[in-house]
Nucleic acid binder design. Sequence first.
DNA 1: CGGTACGTTGAGTCATATCAACCATAGTGG
DNA 2: CCACTATGGTTGATATGACTCAACGTACCG
Lengths: 236, 236
Amino acid sequence: MVQNQESFPFCENCAFQINAIFRHLSKDESDRLNFIKAFRTFKKGTILYKEGSRISGFYCINKGLIKVYKTGPDGKEQIIRFAKPGDIIAYRSVLSNEPACTTAKVLEDCRVCFLPSDILPQLISSNSVFALELVKLICQELGEANSYITDIAQKTVRERLAEVLLKLVNDFGLTENKTLRISLTREELANIVGTATESVIRLLSEFKSDGLIELSGRKIIILDIKGLEKISNFSH
Amino acid sequence: MVQNQESFPFCENCAFQINAIFRHLSKDESDRLNFIKAFRTFKKGTILYKEGSRISGFYCINKGLIKVYKTGPDGKEQIIRFAKPGDIIAYRSVLSNEPACTTAKVLEDCRVCFLPSDILPQLISSNSVFALELVKLICQELGEANSYITDIAQKTVRERLAEVLLKLVNDFGLTENKTLRISLTREELANIVGTATESVIRLLSEFKSDGLIELSGRKIIILDIKGLEKISNFSH
DNA sequence: CGGTACGTTGAGTCATATCAACCATAGTGG
DNA sequence: CCACTATGGTTGATATGACTCAACGTACCG
């Protein structure tokens, strides 16, 4: 079908459009990737892979939104990160050759490419620029993880919620009417911040009373970024 | 001096002895590393580098113990990890070409080699096995960081303290009389767990009453590993 | 029109932080 | 040799942030 052909993403072009790590590949490498990959679409709610399962490859997101989370001892989710177009997920488990240590679930209908495990070590060997950029990418994630450990360990829930809102603004941006461009349930927000759903609800409505945000269903309108920064950094 | 020659570690041998990432280098690469590195010793209490500072290279630990920590908004330390012989530190900042995001302080007198920034990307380019192993190493750290985020977010202080003790047993081992082979102040323990010093003290003496550990000054004798595992995983 | 998932609010509880006092130890300098 | 000081450890009292539980409201969906 024409429609299918149009929508099928070719790595060579796609990687630049969505700013994926694969933009550092040569033409030959891109072609190879394109050849061995499996393009798939997933509906909201689909689970791409589950914590503890063995996976035979990793995913590059072309479109949509995925949440990556770990399940705590009580079955409570801890959201580790979101994956949007250009991001790769599950690469960690593939490289360590370990079972997945997270679960990935679709939040907004997705178009993804599935890439078999082998290709990643191969590309690291064949393309040193790619290798270096991949290392940088992982280092950045590691840096963020370490910062977050410090935050969770030392900041109050109130401070962390403000910080998470700012991070979401930074990662997903605002619409022209200042609405956050990501739609999460209160429970999901709680599972990023590391708190109870009720606490998020209470704090959000506090932020609202303080004129920092406006709420309308799942939409969060950011009114006062400076104010949120103040809460996230200092206070007590 | 003879003594100096004996004590000076040659990368080619050293890397295998201490199981450093550099064991994956060729003879030529090892020689080169050996040539450009600066060997140094540091006394307990020395700070190798400070959060926020620019660094021109990274360190490979030959002997001793270093704590790597971030400083929270209130000036409270959050210990991110320890570095022992064979570990490299500060590589993250070197690779991202960013200011250091942690501080490194000597806990036990150290022998370290300082390696200039440039060498790391060079080795990644020239040696794909090394590149892959480096990626795996970083991935492992990332995996641990993500697990710790989940733990801090969801577990109680009691559970985390038990878990930290077990992790220390795992990383540093026990002497013949079951004493933990790492000596930390109560405050440092608190700065790993992410809690107050007083809480660590109270919980440790609780563990002692429960027959899980024995305390004698800074020494912690581990009596009941199974019991600690039980506390760290389940409970509530 | 019932069902399911999500959102909200209130009340009560508890783990943990904070504050304060005090002890132990070791190194320092007069 | 002894005050002096600094650092770390301990304990108790108190405060409180955040969780839990429970009830109820809301909205969309087949």
